[in-house]
Each structure stands twice: as C-alpha cells, then as structure tokens.
C-alpha cells in the first residue's frame, strides 16, 4: 500500500512546518546563539526540501494517488496484517492489569488459531512459549515483566 510521491511530499511539508512551529516554544539559553531549536530547525528544513522534491517529482510522474496491494482487498489477509500491531496494542493496554502470563498466552493463542494452527498444537505451544519466556526473562534475567493477576501467586 503506498501513496503517490506528491501526496507524500505534501505530508512531509506539513510535518516539517509542524516541527518548526514546535521549536518556537523551546527556551533559548542565555549567552548562546545555538540553542535547543537549531538542530531541529535545520532538520525540518531538510525534510521540507525532500518533501518539495518528492512533490514536484510526483506531480511530473502522474502516479495514482493511492496504490493498494492485493492483501488490502482480501479481508482475511487484511485481518492477518492488522492482527500484528493489534496484538502489540492489546499487550500495551492490558498487560499491567492481567500480568504477563495471561496476556502473552492469550495473544499467542489467538494468533496461532487465526493463522490456522490446529488447537492441539496451538494450546501447548502457546503455554510453553509463554512460560519459557517468563521463566527466562523474569526469572533468570530479572526483567520486571508485569505480574498482574498472579501477583500474589508467583
């Protein structure tokens, strides 16, 4: 899935303008001409320059505004792709409440089953992977994975 270079260029010009506007709120440091806003402004100008070149090039090439890949039109494939970021988002929102073990198990199980793994494979693998990661990272590596529901049991 991609947008026309011209559209991309215009988006970048807008982005660069927004960055420049944000830098106007940075404090100046007394006695220094080159404060916190210098580098972001140079980079905003660079991004704007690239955006302008892309926009001009896109207009000249007359591409389609939006090119969609095959998977976007196939609902099953679209769901497959969206499930990946969806799973990470779900993790971010529920892991502190539920804890790592229930969250990771649920995410793995849903993904396995959606990707057509047989339940008799999916269930033990999801449980095994979750417990292995928890044992290795939380146990051995002492990474503070959220304990959540199981707080008092672990």
């Amino acid at each position: 899935m991609r947008v026309n270079d011209a559209v991309l260029g215009v988006l970048l010009l807008g982005f660069a303008g927004w960055v420049w506007w944000l830098t106007s709120f940075f404090p100046a440091f007394p006695g220094q001409d080159y404060g916190p806003s210098l580098f972001p402004r140079i980079l905003a100008a660079g991004i704007a320059g690239c955006g302008l070149l892309l926009a001009l090039r896109g207009l000249r090439a007359r591409q389609r505004l939006l090119t969609l890949d095959e998977w976007v039109r196939d609902p099953a494939r679209l769901v497959s792709v969206l499930l990946m970021p969806g799973a990470v988002l779900a993790y971010i929102f529920v892991v502190d409440t539920l804890g790592f073990i229930p969250t990771a198990f649920a995410i793995l199980l849903v993904l396995f089953l959606w990707f057509r793994a047989r339940p008799v494979v999916a269930l033990p693998v999801a449980a095994g992977v979750t417990l292995t990661i928890h044992w290795f990272f939380a146990g051995m590596m002492r990474v503070p994975l959220p304990r959540g529901l199981l707080d008092s049991v672990l």
């Binding site: 990946m84 995410i107 793994a117 990272f137």
Partner: peptide, 19 residues
C-alpha cells in the same frame, strides 16, 4: 511452520523491547 513462528517472534520482540 510460519504460523507458529511469526507469533512467537512477535512475542520475543515485545519482551525484548520491554527489557
């Protein structure tokens, strides 16, 4: 099988970046 591998990799990515 990729249907097992991809979700596993995703979970490793999550834990790895959390750490």
């Amino acid at each position: 099988p990729r249907n097992i591998l991809l979700p596993m990799i995703l979970m490793f990515c999550i834990v790895g970046s959390f750490a």
